[in-house]
Simulated assay, not measured.
Amino acid sequence: MTAPATNQRRSMVLLRPVPGTSPIHELWAGTKLIVVALIGVVLTVYPGWVPIGLVALLIVMTAWLAHIPRGVLPTVPRAVWLLLLLGAGTAALAGGTPFVGVGSAHVGLGGFLNFMQITVLSIVLLGLGGLVSWTTNVAEIAPAVATLGRPLRWLRIPIDEWAVTLALGLRAFPMLIDEYRVLFAARRLRPRPEPTTRRERSRRRRADIVDMLAAAVTVALRRGDEMGDAITARGGVGQIVASPARPGRADAMALLLVVAMCALSVWVEVYTPLATSKH
């Protein structure tokens, strides 16, 4: 018997909730969307280390409460680490405050710290989106969007149609990914003669791209037709945005916690620099 491979690469798991239940799973989908919007606005206006650290702490605590396993995290390719090292080295050449004395020289760490701040901010935002994906059923997002956008109906904005489009896109995305993986696997398994010249390899590459695009469009059209028939059989698009789920006491507590965290982040970013500058 052969030993199982321990270094097998894990792909990104999105739009598929982690099995099980938890206080985070039971929250209303609209509450999670509001939390993501609030945190996104705060990190856009005040992308400092304190807001990033507080959001990262919130993500870790929420993942612990939701019982998110480490297996949902993808394997980072080595090329990504090399690009990060290259970017950090290039940014470090920009210098800037603060300066660190290395022997008789003064090295500026401003560019390196800015690069690290942007990198950590990107990782935190990706983790926030992944956490919502791992704890929320795709079918609950469209009704939540329709409920949150109900005031926009007074402006004659077709919020229900937008919610239906979002729901169909979220439901079709995982299916299309699986279909494309099957197509790529079948393409590799098909026996073909190996090209001998550079011109033949280039021609083979262009032909492969055209064939895969045509197959992908055909699969998408077939899936769309099947989904349309299923929606018609279940009562039309109105059933997609219809859901009795509404926010409860736990949602109010979660929103209060996130609002308090955002207020603390803004207070630290606004008043701490002013207080230090006066001294």
Rank of each mutant, 00 (worst) to 15 (best):
L131A: 01
T2S: 12
G235S: 14
L57A: 14
L54Q: 04
Q117E: 04
L57T: 04
V55R: 02
T272G: 05
F115P: 00
P23A: 10
R171T: 08
G248F: 07
R234H: 15
V138D: 01
T196K: 08
L86S: 06
I159R: 05
A220E: 02
S104D: 14
G149S: 07
E140F: 05
M253P: 10
R78I: 11
I141Y: 01
L73H: 09
L221Q: 07
T196A: 10
T135F: 01
M61H: 12
V259T: 06
G149Q: 03
I118N: 02
A185V: 08
T197S: 01
L176H: 09
Y46D: 00
T147I: 11
V138W: 05
V259M: 08
L125D: 11
P158Q: 14
L168S: 09
R188H: 05
D251E: 08
L121D: 09
R234S: 15
N137K: 14
L128M: 06
T232P: 11
L131E: 00
A230T: 08
A275Y: 15
A3E: 15
A215T: 00
S202C: 12
G53L: 15
A275V: 11
E194H: 08
L113P: 00
A186H: 12
A263I: 12
L73E: 11
L189C: 09
T136R: 01
V100D: 12
L58S: 06
V182F: 15
V60H: 14
A275T: 09
